[in-house]
Amino acid sequence: MVILQTENLKKAFGGLQAVNKVNLTIAKGELSSIIGPNGAGKTTLFNLITGYLPADSGKIIFKGENIFGLPHYKIVRKGIGRSFQRTTIFPSLTLFENVRAAILSHKKKNFKFFTDSNSLEDVNEATFQILESLNLPDKAYLISSTLAHGDQKLLDIGIALALEPDLLLLDEPTAGMSPEERWNTVAMIQKLWKTRNMTVVFIEHDMDMVFSISQQIRVLHYGEIIAEGQPEEISHNRAVIEAYLGEEMI
């Protein structure tokens, strides 16, 4: 079953065709990755899917419904969660408050004026579950901007996870982490994907990671998908090797 499909998706910035005629088909339950050299248009593609940027033309079909042109906050409510390449959290709030805000929104308890947020048991419980799955419960009451970079990246993912998305888009979830943090994060993502029944697409530059956990890999180059397939096929694909030549060794 297909969860997300794009047809002929296009986006230009001035003369630069950042995303060009992209036809994506993502199967439900898949753990897949998008790779490509710097500036290939990977983040832009996520931005189009999540409604952060308006696409120029094309179709975006999520769970059978055309979400093209919907405002971003509505797309989130349809079930697409995302993390950001440049960590995007609520810096002056505690980790608990960061995740709780997303839980409140997800449980549709966000528009209450005369309830004490602290008194919502189910919300507190769900918040701690997320923090536990990120291995961050001890830091629940620290101000998030005081965390190390790696923990902030995890929190960014945690905010998206709290929305219980059907489709989770992770933009370079391990960028800037130490090798050890990296593998812990990979293991965590894999575990969450399995236990939570999500479809996960991540953008990543670390080829070890990409090839070790992706079921499907899509390669973006100058805004176009130049290859698509299982890790085995991609690693032997000529176009991919050429695109990466001089950039990274495969």
């Binding site: 971003h72 906050y73 408050e97 929104s105 905010i159």
Partner: peptide, 15 residues
């Protein structure tokens, strides 16, 4: 408070 801290991310929790 999340709007104050980061209104963009607040949109992306569905608000």
């Amino acid at each position: 408070k999340t709007i104050r801290d980061n209104f963009l991310r607040t949109y992306f929790i569905g608000i």
